[in-house]
Write a protein that binds this DNA or RNA. Structure first.
Lengths: 331, 331
DNA sequence: AAGGCTTCTGTGAACGTGCACAGTAATGCT
DNA sequence: AGCATTACTGTGCACGTTCACAGAAGCCTT
């Protein structure tokens, strides 16, 4: 009834522990005969290595901790995390490693994460949605390698990351709107302590120059309600606007509602550009012209960086990947 | 530089390993003096228990594996999983346990999951979106306790679960549509190998009786595109329909598009009812009248069942929680 | 024929913990 | 006073693995 150990396998194969261990860990000095006997013994006994015993001696855990700092609720509905999680699990599984999820919403959570990581329970840390000034980043500095999916504002040189070229994406949308002959282009940004909030506004300003006046800029918090509010504000401040670039599709859905309430037609009176190419982009009416991010590639690069560091690379360079304009009907 | 061990703590506190261990594990026989000295020593040394060493001797891992069988991509955007993950991480953290994510999409994945779980690397298994006939369920039967969030079709008596009362929700919507005076009510279902697919149709049929003719029923696969297709089919087969109950909000968004394309006004010509009360429900035009599921409670109950089993409960009863009608503008 | 590689194998020690057991001192009970 | 009980503490062993080391066997070189 007991689970078979490496001893049982060795006995069944007629060799010693050491030889079995060598086979398991890919050491080259194992004779073909021994190899065959051991492989047979493993499948007969249904042996699977005990990771606890292994990590006790190797000081490695085969585990990566995914730490999410989103203080409230809905961190996940974002396809970003969905993709990242999937890619991470896949890539780690290939190396027989596993992904454990941790929340770092409040102080207690954060302490637990630090204890866990510094206690040596993870070989690496995958940071997600870490806000500017999050104390977690510094608390984790002395531990195992950490990377972030998306830059950590203010810690770009400390925490390696892979990210979308947010600024490029914003430029693409702004240029498209200008190219369509729009003259009074407004913007609803994300929160200004996130990379997406800051850099999408920067890209917008790159193209619009001083036409990007404060009057034409409203700030949201990624929620649909904030998009609706932002749009209403903008309409009040600049009734003559003929286009709006909204920093996320979800907020853009809110903006559409506000425009409809104000009797403006989209795209005839006002063109609307979104960002993310998420599932809401096609469920709105009209469907959103938006910016697609290479989510899967970003996720993949993030994990690649982390694995390189875990494998001993002293330093890795951040990776920034280009976005793509997706034209639908809203602009 | 080495991480402090229980020995170091014992030495610093002037007691023996055993006493420290007793304090750590909540044994009552520790004198107040020893307790104080040990607690001080722990915080001074920054000691954190080595889980590998602990599980080696206790045969427990402090880990729950969350296994997702969704064959393709987007398992996560569903707020269902988002909520479940969050709740699971929270509740497990309280007991100092952790959640590891595993995918069971293809055969290779499934084998890895079985190896992992039967190899004793998890104290419990949390099944998610497991389809009818999934071989994983039987392969896991001999291992540690497993529960499912949402019933596993055909294995309801083997795998304990917490779930929404899907059938009740469908009845609520059907009764509401009937109560609004609708006479020709159609339905677009989910895939018929999922609880949501089957039971939402059953609830609909409970209310409509033989009025729920095959002519008025189309099948979707939860995607928006399938909702659009289903609606087009229904309009072709029964042009006189005046209401449609769509088994998910996302499919309902597709149905709205098809209705708009056909020139039908919602809700004037056709009332549309959704299911889930997800974020799309408020981003469509008009916003969807839908059924809210108590996601957080279901998640909580699921984990509670699992923990009870891990704690040695021989048997637990499934939990089914009621839904709620949310009235917006589409019906 | 002797020595030195290369290839392969077995063995003892260590990793850090919990648990059973033995043991001590103080207290309560008759 | 004697004995049982309670409260507390220390010690040896086992958990299952990897790693360093030592050693055996075969082959090539001198």
């Amino acid at each position: 009834m007991k689970r078979p150990t490496i001893h049982d396998v060795a006995a069944a194969a007629g060799v010693s522990r050491g030889t079995v261990s060598r086979l398991l860990n890919g050491d080259k000095y194992v004779s073909p005969a021994a190899r065959a006997a051991i492989e047979r013994a493993i499948s007969e006994t249904g042996y699977v290595v005990n990771r606890a015993a292994r990590s006790l001696v190797t000081q490695r855990t085969g585990t990566v901790a995914m730490v999410m700092s989103e203080p409230h609720a809905k961190f996940f509905e974002d396809p970003n995390y969905s993709t990242l999680t999937r890619v991470a699990v896949r890539m780690l599984a290939e190396r027989d490693m596993s992904l454990v999820m941790m929340l770092a919403g409040d102080e207690g959570d954060r302490e637990r994460v630090v204890r866990y990581v510094r206690g040596g329970h993870a070989d690496g840390v995958l940071l997600v949605s870490t806000h500017a000034g999050d104390p977690l980043v510094d608390a984790l500095a002395a531990g195992p390698p950490a990377v972030s999916c998306g830059a950590v504002i203010g810690r770009e040189t400390i925490i390696p990351y892979a990210a979308t070229d947010e600024r490029l994406g914003a430029r693409q949308m702004a240029e498209y709107l200008v190219g369509q002959g729009r003259r009074r282009i407004a913007m609803i940004t994300g929160p200004m302590d996130t990379p997406g909030g800051i850099q999408r506004l920067e890209g917008f300003a790159d193209v619009l120059g001083r036409k990007a006046s404060r009057k034409l800029i409203a700030h949201g918090d990624w929620t649909q309600a904030s998009g609706e509010r932002g749009m209403a504000e903008l309409l009040a401040r600049a009734p003559d606007l003929d286009a709006v670039f909204v920093a996320s599709d979800l907020m853009a859905a809110g903006a559409l509602a506000a425009l409809r309430a104000a009797g403006r037609r989209v795209p005839d009176d006002v063109a609307v550009g979104g960002f993310d190419d998420s599932s809401v982009a096609v469920s709105t009416h009209p469907p959103l012209t938006t910016i697609r991010q290479p989510l899967a590639e970003v996720a993949q690069e993030t994990i690649r960086l982390l694995l390189a560091l875990i494998d001993g690379a002293g330093h890795v360079d951040p990776v920034v990947l280009p976005t793509e304009l997706v034209i639908r009907e809203s602009a």
